[in-house]
Computed example of a mutant assay.
Amino acid sequence: MAISQGSNETSYLLPPNKEDWEGRGIPDFVYGQQELLWEGVQWPEYAPSRPDALPGPGSRFDSALCSAWRQRMDLGLFRYCLGELQTQTLPGAVGFVAQLNVERGVQRRAPQSIGSMRQAFDPKQFNFTKIRPGEVLFRLRRKPDLPGALRQEDILVMINVSPLEWGHVLLVPEPALGLPQRLLPGALRAGLEAVLLSSHPGFRVGFNSLGGLASVNHLHLHGYYLAHRLPVERAPSERLDPGGHLHLLQAVPAPGFLFYTGGPEPDLEALISRVCRATDYLTDHEIAHNLFVTRGAPPGKTSPSSALTGVRVILWARKSSFKRKESEAFNVALCELAGHLSVKTSQDFGSLTEAASLALIQDCLLPPAQAEEVQAALVALASQKEP
């Protein structure tokens, strides 16, 4: 399947013969400002289980990602074949979306040995320069005239071979640079703009820090489709700083720091700067964190309608954990904090309750005194004038 790019046609699919993959160059997905969808994206009356089954045409980005991702699944490049996942919304006030994904729990790559938030990149460990060529879908590139002072690295969009959900990809900035898993402005911009390039309301992007269940110490973000609304899209919030740049998200699985933008430059660049100042503080102080990017309502509003009017970035500070707890029903990382639970066993899926889920999540959060200290520091950073 070829995806149209203006007057040219670029194929994001592999040739049928595996021996031809090595010689195939990585296609470029080049986008401009007009493709960033700030308005008009909303949930349909019903949400189909597959992103390629949404009513109406998807965006050019969705078409490129979904067609190439589906082909890699058909070619057997994943560790398992992801079918339609059994899904339920847990009864209760939060509205957890739980999915049974047994094979991810069993077959995903073992996490690397990591002992510090500031651990250096180790080229001897697994990293994204060692993947098979067919795992790369395309290179994400901004047009040179797209506004924004930040330099944008080339971002490789590649499959996650142990997918969490349909369309699960990794966004990896210039893998050959060997960047450790510490959020950088260019990487965050790519994640935000990927969300804005999608016309699917359930395409989300996230980041796990070292100690926040990142399993590979090589800079990457996650992107995936989930055809369900999540609590963080519309949860109310409390303003924390006089300028209204930082809010505390309430009535969700875990209190998180909310950053929001409803429009393009300069607001987008200011948001990126504020978020990265916050994640730099957390990393420098050895505080693990998870980050989630989703379309949603402005701060303080609950958006009862299906309309999604801007982009929410939620940041959670948490206890450091350098080892997954395989005995738990689910591991707590970016999607679980947002209300999407990837459950490992049929037994846990059948018996899981909202109370048990909240207890697992609460156990990963900072103790109250440290949480207050972090909040005060991030409020002070948010109140700083932009350079």
Rank of each mutant, 00 (worst) to 15 (best):
L82V: 01
E84C: 05
L85G: 09
Q86N: 05
T87W: 07
T87M: 08
T87F: 06
L90G: 10
A93S: 15
V94M: 13
G95I: 09
V97P: 09
A98E: 06
A98Y: 03
N101H: 11
N101G: 07
V102L: 13
V102N: 10
E103H: 13
E103R: 14
R104N: 06
G105V: 06
R108P: 05
R108F: 02
R109V: 11
R109K: 09
R109Y: 00
A110T: 15
A110F: 02
A110C: 07
A110H: 12
P111Q: 12
S113K: 14
S113Q: 15
I114L: 15
G115S: 15
S116Y: 02
M117Y: 00
R118G: 10
R118E: 12
Q119S: 10
A120E: 14
F121S: 05
D122G: 03
P123V: 09
P123W: 07
Q125K: 13
Q125Y: 00
N127V: 12
T129D: 11
K130A: 12
I131D: 12
R132L: 13
L140Q: 07
R141N: 11
R141Q: 14
R141S: 11
R142D: 10
K143N: 09
L146N: 07
L146K: 00
L146I: 05
P147F: 10
A149D: 08
L150Q: 13
R151W: 06
R151Y: 09
D154F: 00
I155W: 10
I155M: 14
L156E: 13
L156I: 00
L156C: 07
V157C: 04
V157Y: 04
V157F: 01
M158P: 01
I159G: 02
V161K: 14
S162D: 10
L164N: 04
G167T: 02
G167H: 02
H168R: 03
H168N: 08
L170R: 03
L171Q: 01
L171F: 04
P173L: 11
E174N: 03
P175W: 05
L177E: 09
G178R: 14
G178T: 14
L179K: 14
L179M: 14
P180Q: 04
P180L: 03
P180N: 07
P180V: 03
L183T: 07
G186P: 09
A187R: 04
A187Q: 11
A187H: 06
L188M: 04
R189P: 03
R189S: 12
G191I: 10
L192K: 03
L192G: 05
L192S: 04
V195Y: 00
L197A: 04
S198I: 00
S199H: 02
S199Y: 01
H200P: 01
P201F: 08
P201C: 11
P201T: 10
G202K: 06
F203C: 01
R204P: 00
G206H: 00
F207Q: 09
N208W: 03
N208P: 06
L210Q: 12
G211R: 12
G212F: 11
